[in-house]
């Protein structure tokens, strides 16, 4: 616990400088390299002023052929972007048990075909269904689908009943089992609510091009995940979906997922 506080202080100490800097640099729009191999795009960084509409539908295409076994760049990037790494294991908890209780918005899964022995590895996250079971079952309406197709949790309404976790066919949601300290301004999260991948909604509303996992995968040179608008025929994701065979997970449930997989 003490360690967490120390780290927080160290982190907080940076803020004044950053804030001073912001005053000078405000308004600059650019695309620059912030770390070796990481390219941040800020094309149109205007915050959203109009309500999101159903003219767009955000989605992901995952090419399992390009996904590399043993790589967890997307998972790490997600933890980083959304501050999941700020939630540390309670001191008295057993590591093995915490593994079953810690948050996970995206995880890597490795499969083998029973008949052919073919191996596949892929990232698995909220599939952003068009007809999401989690939204159907939520008693308070905290679990909802935004007009642009993002399925997310309104943490102000979530009472922590976890019925959505029972209903999700992808086991995409996790419950915050312990206190969270030092949250990011952009991703508020706290004990007792359910959460899941929201396609980096904070990036969406500020007009950024992609998600943390996509950037991280690209930075590793794998380019296994593509993000884009499923309703725009000229988008990269639509063109790729046109070219290559892809499928939804558990398509028998006819949920019309926003995340598609090829090669699985």
């Amino acid at each position: 616990m003490e360690k967490v506080i120390d780290m927080k202080d160290e982190n907080d100490a940076i803020n004044p400088q950053r804030r001073a800097f912001l005053g000078v640099a405000a308004g600059v729009t650019a695309a620059v390299t912030v770390a070796p191999g990481v390219l941040l795009h800020t094309v149109d960084a205007a915050p959203r002023a109009e309500p999101v509409t159903s003219d767009v539908r955000w989605g992901l295409l995952i090419d399992t052929a390009k996904c590399v076994d043993g790589c967890s760049a997307c998972v790490d990037a997600c933890h980083h972007e959304n501050g999941l790494n700020l939630q540390t294991m309670p001191a008295e908890q057993a590591v093995k048990k915490w593994e079953t209780q810690k948050p996970a918005w995206v995880r890597k899964v490795k499969l083998q075909d029973n008949q052919t022995g073919r191996m596949t590895t892929l990232p698995l996250m909220c599939q952003h269904c068009d007809d999401p079971p989690c939204v159907d079952v939520c008693p308070t309406g905290a679990s909802f689908k935004r007009a642009d197709g993002i399925v997310m949790v309104d943490r102000h309404l979530c009472i922590g009943c976890r019925y959505c976790m029972m209903a999700c066919p992808y086991k995409a949601r996790s419950f915050i089992h312990s206190d969270v300290h030092g949250q990011l301004t952009s991703v508020p999260r706290g004990k007792g609510c359910v959460e899941s991948c929201n396609l980096c909604v904070q990036r969406r509303d500020f007009g950024q091009e992609s998600t943390a996992c996509v950037d991280a995968c690209a930075a590793e040179g794998h380019h296994a995940i593509v993000f884009g608008d499923l309703k725009d025929p000229d988008s990269t994701i639509c063109k790729l979906l046109n070219e290559m065979p892809s499928r939804q997970l558990r398509e028998d449930l006819v949920l019309n997922t926003g995340v598609r997989y090829s090669g699985v």
Partner: peptide
């Protein structure tokens, strides 16, 4: 749930752009 101190990328467009610019 909300950050009680400014933490990480601020939710302000201009500042965010500046942030990104400087890493």
């Amino acid at each position: 749930c909300h950050a009680a101190v400014p933490n990480g990328t601020p939710l302000n467009a201009a500042a965010m752009a500046a942030h990104d610019a400087a890493g």
